[in-house]
Design a protein around this nucleic acid. Structure first.
Length: 288
DNA sequence: ATCAGAGCCTGCCAGC
DNA sequence: TGCTGGCAGGCTCTGA
């Protein structure tokens, strides 16, 4: 379940492997995981597919906003990557390596005109995908639909985006247009840390609540990045390594187990279609 | 205008 | 042992 911390780890580990290097050739095994540049043919000829997928491009840098990762080429071409639930995007040295049926795209990576390895996009469940964008302007436009990055969450920002909503606050946190990069795991973690009941309606939170929640979001995301990202099943960073942020989870995946705050069993329920774990006591009635 | 819910997809695991 | 069904969830679409 890559959320912001996992995607940031992928970005940070991949960038030094790719920056300044050429993505020589690309193979797209499954076309349906890729979306061409908006306004261009849905099924372009092979040469155009390759061009849009950065064939022969030299990578300038990797940017991230929320859970979205952008590979930016020196010539301005852009490939947007979303890992969905089970996506992996990683570099591995060597060539002709084993590929299973979940590897949907790969690139030959060259340094000084010599192949040094492969960049691989793998995604068993295929909730993720690749999007080609025409230029940085298109990327800017696309990312303008997202809220501020989770690492830059602020109380006033959250309140402006969600303060009038009647949704449960947990549902609000999952809304990428309000705050980008928070998924199910870190929504639960941040709410626990902020001692806010996930079922509480957004419009019932006051400025102090939003401030506390914003601080908790920044803290849990930052701690998870430090820990190397969650080691939930399919997650791998840009070099194929698992993370160990799971040890930092205080509520996620711990339904029924004792709350670290009060020792009472953590409750779990469905909220906004997601498994939600919280402490009805610690996150219960707020002192106001 | 909002928001809840279904559906996408596959691997894993509990239960029979 | 082998099968089945439920579950996991980010995001988009649909319909209330």
């Amino acid at each position: 379940m890559p959320e912001l911390p996992e995607v940031e780890r992928v970005r940070a580990t991949l960038e030094p492997r790719l920056a300044g290097r050429r993505l020589a050739a690309v193979t797209l095994k499954r076309r349906d995981i890729w979306t061409p540049i908006a306004g261009t043919p849905k099924r372009p000829p092979a040469a155009e597919v390759a061009r849009q997928l950065l064939a022969e491009a030299v990578v300038a840098r990797l940017d991230r906003r929320g859970k979205q990762l952008a590979v930016i080429a020196e010539d301005g071409r852009i490939l947007l990557v979303h890992l969905g639930m089970t996506g992996q995007f990683f570099f591995r040295p060597g060539a002709g390596l084993q590929r299973d049926r979940h590897v949907h795209a790969w690139w030959t990576v060259e340094a000084a005109a010599e192949a040094i390895g492969e960049l691989v996009f793998r995604d068993p469940r295929r909730f993720g995908g690749l999007w080609s964008l025409a230029d940085v302007e298109a990327l800017r436009e696309r990312w303008s639909e997202l809220g501020p990055d989770g690492l830059e969450a602020t109380g006033p920002g959250l309140q402006a985006a969600l303060g009038k909503s009647k949704r449960a606050v947990k549902a609000g946190l999952l809304d990428q247009a309000a705050i980008a990069g928070v998924g199910n795991i870190y929504a639960d973690e941040a709410l626990f840390r902020a001692r806010i009941d996930p079922r509480l309606r957004c419009d019932r939170l006051n400025a102090a609540d939003w401030d506390r929640l914003a601080g908790s979001i920044r803290a849990v995301l930052g701690a998870a990045i430090e820990a190397g990202g969650s080691t939930l099943r399919d997650y791998r960073d840009g070099e194929g390594r698992a993370g160990n942020a799971r040890e930092t989870h205080r509520v996620y995946g711990r339904g029924g187990e004792p709350c670290f705050g009060c020792g009472r069993p953590l409750r779990f329920m469905k909220l906004a279609q997601r498994t939600t774990v919280f402490c009805a006591f610690c996150q219960g009635r707020r002192a106001r």
